[in-house]
Design a protein around this nucleic acid. Structure first.
Lengths: 341, 341
DNA sequence: CAAAATCCCGGGATCGTTCCCGGGAACGAT
DNA sequence: ATCGTTCCCGGGAACGATCCCGGGATTTTG
């Protein structure tokens, strides 16, 4: 199958040189005559020679592969992050192997095992929803393999992290709803074990309090199951004695489902209820009304995570650091109550 | 960094055995005493020994990695396909390296180079829009590395393929529009160099002709640029002397944009114009009206492609084959004119 | 002109694993 | 007692590239 592959030895035989000389010539070392180097490079070109990465990796004792573990690659946010990571990684002539935890702690643990077994030189991770205790990453850290977490991070581990400004983004989104005249704002929150869910919740709470609004715990919904439809909690929010007049959701999918069910009830958006989502899905602008959303720069997040990881790979003793990337509130009609006054 | 890794030699030294014996014991060969095997396995467990995949790969002369080249991973269809591929690949204890052509022929060529340089054991590919001539894959085929194409295929190469029933899907979708009373149906077509674009166009044409409708070439739009917004061609369709009363689009994103601009013009969907999309985006059901769409089983497509690839990897002489996977028309309100009669 | 420095290159070890080959011990059969 | 089997196991050569070491040939230096 790969019997016909050209090795350094083949070049050496044809030129009546030793493999060492050919190797040095290809590597551009100085202790080989310009003439010989020329011959070698020419033949290598001609025969379309590539060094076997596996042999190189064995010799160098590294895999030139980094691992990526994300909850779901068919989540556009993570797909974009992967794109950002790939840009950086390909510049370093590394490869990525990707795996999905499917939001499951068990699968995440298995993924970590696979990554370890594959001797990745570094790992980029965004945690599963279920992951409260992230100690299974310590096995990897103990082998001095660097890990960079992004977006879904956990405070229990002393590693580098890249996150967006969840607190500020959330605060800004809620403040925007308040500025548009909302007084009872609901928050569809993420699982509280995730750092960014908590930060967003804090931002929500602080914005409410800073503007002297009543912080009603019945307006805070923890969407327990990721795949769950928004119908139940939308209904229950609407059936409150004093239902919300604004909703800030953890992602656009929820926000869009909520809009759908609100419209089914005959209520108007944003006049009756204003909505802001998160992550700015590419289709969000085409809804009726177009959905306001916090745009989180997923690609940039991925790039930063990868860049940070390579710094760790290149310098073993680099202390962990955290990077925060600014998000951007995109205001569309779903939250523009002032437009209809 | 990985100096502390345990090798087979470490096990051998501790047990005063040779590396060969340890290797055979771990591999479960019969020619080693049950007692020794027991000791070896126990110590391996204890020291948390994993064989180094790089060394194994070098020895076995394969990488245990397959390559995936897709146009865009943040296209949900391809993300789902990747998920399907991963399921199969992980069962074979293989890994995937993923790359994106970004619909560019040049990048696709580079991706192929990278895959070759990385000695992938097989390749799964969905072609870029720009790719008319796919001869750059011949370099890989010449090394006897199997390739399976899926969805975006090309007839010029004698390899295995997995596609959906584009012709039938298209025919069914258009027939559905006709059944709902549409008489002037437009088709937003994909680039004609892609096999499935042509098949869909054929299905469209045949459905029109079989039902004695006039095949108006002005109703066939080739969306030249993938990223292009639907606004220009939607406007031009609407400004025809006799504008369409039904539109069958190449994907949901186009369909949704079209709906958006049609509604902006004050026209009603489906009463004035009925719409059917393709690929059934997860958000399509939440639009107003909910979008009818052809659901293409991306995950299954990925699985089949991977399974087929492994058959080729395991059997070098397996002749190329093609598999067709059935899609499914999901009818929602955007095309249900009969409901409003 | 001899000694030293310089320039190129080959030999061989190395990375960690697998696998072929062959050797020694135990055992039963002749 | 000798021979042929069977059963375990060790030695050593791969896999392909890199790199240290040292040696011969040429050039420079005193």
């Amino acid at each position: 199958m790969r019997g016909r592959r050209i090795r350094i030895k083949d070049l050496a035989d044809r030129l009546s040189l030793s493999t060492s000389t050919v190797s040095r010539a290809l590597a551009g070392h100085s202790d080989v005559s310009a003439e010989t180097r020329q011959l070698v490079n020419q033949l290598a070109d001609e025969l379309n020679y590539y060094p076997d990465p596996i042999a190189v990796n064995l010799k160098q004792r590294k895999s030139n592969v980094i691992g990526l573990i994300v909850p779901n690659i068919d989540n556009r946010f993570f797909a974009k992050a992967l794109t950002g990571i790939q840009q950086v990684v390909s510049q370093h002539a590394y490869n990525i192997i990707t795996s999905q935890s499917n939001e499951s702690l068990e699968i995440e643990k298995k993924n970590v095992e696979v990554m370890m077994a594959n001797r990745v030189d570094g790992l980029i991770v965004s945690l599963a929803r279920e992951t409260i205790n992230a100690q299974h990453f310590n096995k990897i850290l103990n082998t001095d393999t660097p890990i960079v977490f992004f977006d879904r991070v956990n405070e229990g581990l002393d590693t580098s992290k890249v996150v967006i400004d969840d607190y500020e983004a959330s605060y800004k989104a809620v403040k925007h709803l308040i500025d548009e005249g909302c007084r009872r704002i609901a928050h569809i929150a993420g699982p509280p074990n995730l750092f960014n869910s908590r930060k967003r919740l804090e931002g929500y709470k602080d914005a409410i309090r800073d503007h002297d609004l009543y912080l009603d715990k019945r307006l805070i919904i923890f969407a327990s199951n990721y795949q769950q439809d928004a119908k139940p909690y939308t209904k229950s929010l609407l059936s409150l004695n004093s239902p919300p007049d604004g909703i800030f959701a953890l992602n656009d999918r929820s926000a869009i489902q909520i809009m759908y069910y609100i419209k089914q009830e005959g209520l108007k958006i944003p006049q009756d209820i204003a909505i802001v989502g998160f992550n700015n899905n590419e289709l969000s602008q085409y809804f009726d009304p177009p959905l306001s959303s916090v745009e989180s720069p997923a690609e940039e997040l991925g790039q930063s995570a990868a860049e940070l990881l390579f710094k760790h790979i290149e310098n073993e003793n680099l202390p962990p650091s955290s990077k925060v990337i600014k998000s951007n509130l995109i205001v569309r009609d779903s939250s523009l109550r002032s437009k209809y006054l």
